[in-house]
């Protein structure tokens, strides 16, 4: 059982959720959260350190905290947030520095690294399910995928140099839910969602609650290895769009590639380049190893995750998210909670 846990990227949604879960566990002595930006929520027990993992000073934080478990969630999935240069700096250089610091530390027992199923790529001739030992069949095109592959390489190198450390790499499918904001959720939030004409790929999600639970288990228990973290089954993109309450706008393939290359050319088309091949060819990972090793059944199916996402969008229409006044936040939470309660009442169990 770990005593002192250090989480990087605590201000991101997965970090927040994980910290909440760890806080509830009394056997953990200390939880240290590291991020450049302060988290949007208040914690009782989590100590927040505003630090940059790229800075060599960070190793001092690790040494001083004497953390035995490091959970590396500070991975930026899209260029939209901070630009490509910053994204690469954070993802690649940040991970390098973090793992270098971990290698020097003598208190460290476990490292958990967040990755993505995007490392498998999305190609038409891909198998229906990707198992962990399969590697991609083509060179990566999206920057996120390239970063994730580099991060995994560094993590594996680290694992070789420190065989005494339990190394877990979690490959998450697209995370969706009521609080997450990522490339796919922004894509799915458009009133008319552009798709590639003639293609209806199988896509896969994981609900943010299940994603946090899987990370929590990786932090608490020892599961060395690589795991796909994904909900059961798969869903056609068209069905996901319909279930999200959106319209589908099929676009000729050249126009989609063009919209990606020349950004701003078609402002009504928001197809993030990170997922452009996924919306054409899809990607589904096999989650059986995770279910077996973690003894964990995802609570939400792919469609449940889409449904939760839709409920959030509905609530947002009632209360706009633009201002951050606390009473509005409370009100929004109230609306979401009431909607969920009413839904629970309406659906006979």
């Amino acid at each position: 059982m770990p005593r002192r846990i250090l989480i990087t990227g605590i201000s991101r949604f997965l970090g927040l959720r994980l910290a909440r879960k760890l806080e509830a566990n009394d056997e953990i002595d200390e939880i240290i959260g590291v991020d450049l930006e302060p988290p949007s929520e208040e914690f009782k027990r989590v100590e927040i350190v505003r630090a940059d993992i790229r800075n060599p000073l960070f190793s001092k934080v690790l040494q001083a905290s004497r953390a035995d478990t490091v959970i590396h969630l500070n991975i930026i999935p899209s260029e939209a947030e901070k630009g490509r240069t910053m994204m690469k700096e954070m993802n690649v250089i940040g991970t390098m520095q973090l793992l270098a610091a971990c290698q020097k530390s003598d208190s460290i027992r476990k490292v958990v690294v967040k990755s993505t199923t995007a490392v498998y790529g999305s190609e038409p001739e891909d198998p229906a399910f990707f198992a962990e030992e399969m590697s991609r069949r083509s060179t990566p095109k999206s920057s996120y995928c390239r970063d994730a592959m580099e991060i995994e390489t560094y993590a594996r190198d680290f694992g070789r140099r420190r065989p005494d450390v339990c190394l877990t790499i979690l490959r998450f499918a697209t995370i969706l839910g009521s609080t997450v904001n990522n490339a796919f959720s922004r894509y799915l939030a458009q009133p008319m969602v552009p798709t590639v004409l003639g293609f209806d790929p199988r896509v896969q999600f994981i609900h943010e609650e299940d994603a946090a639970e899987a990370t929590y288990r990786a932090a608490i228990e020892d599961h060395p290895g690589i795991f796909n973290v994904a909900a059961d089954g798969a869903v056609p993109l068209s069905q996901a769009i319909r279930r999200a309450g959106r319209g589908q706008l099929p676009i000729l393939p050249p126009a989609v590639w063009l919209a990606d290359r020349v950004s701003g050319l078609m402002p009504f088309l928001n197809v993030p380049s990170a997922i452009i091949r996924e919306i054409a060819y899809g990607r589904v990972a096999d989650n059986s190893r995770m279910k077996e090793e973690f003894g964990f059944e995802p609570k939400y199916s792919c469609l449940d995750a889409v449904h939760d996402f839709r409920e959030k969008k509905r609530a947002e229409r009632i209360v706009r998210q633009e201002t951050d006044a606390t009473w509005e936040k409370d009100l929004r939470e109230f609306v979401i909670r009431k909607q969920n309660e009413r839904r629970a009442d309406l659906t006979p169990t």
Partner: peptide
């Protein structure tokens, strides 16, 4: 979108 699709599509 109220229909069932198996994991192979």
């Amino acid at each position: 979108g109220q229909y069932y699709v198996d994991e192979y599509g």
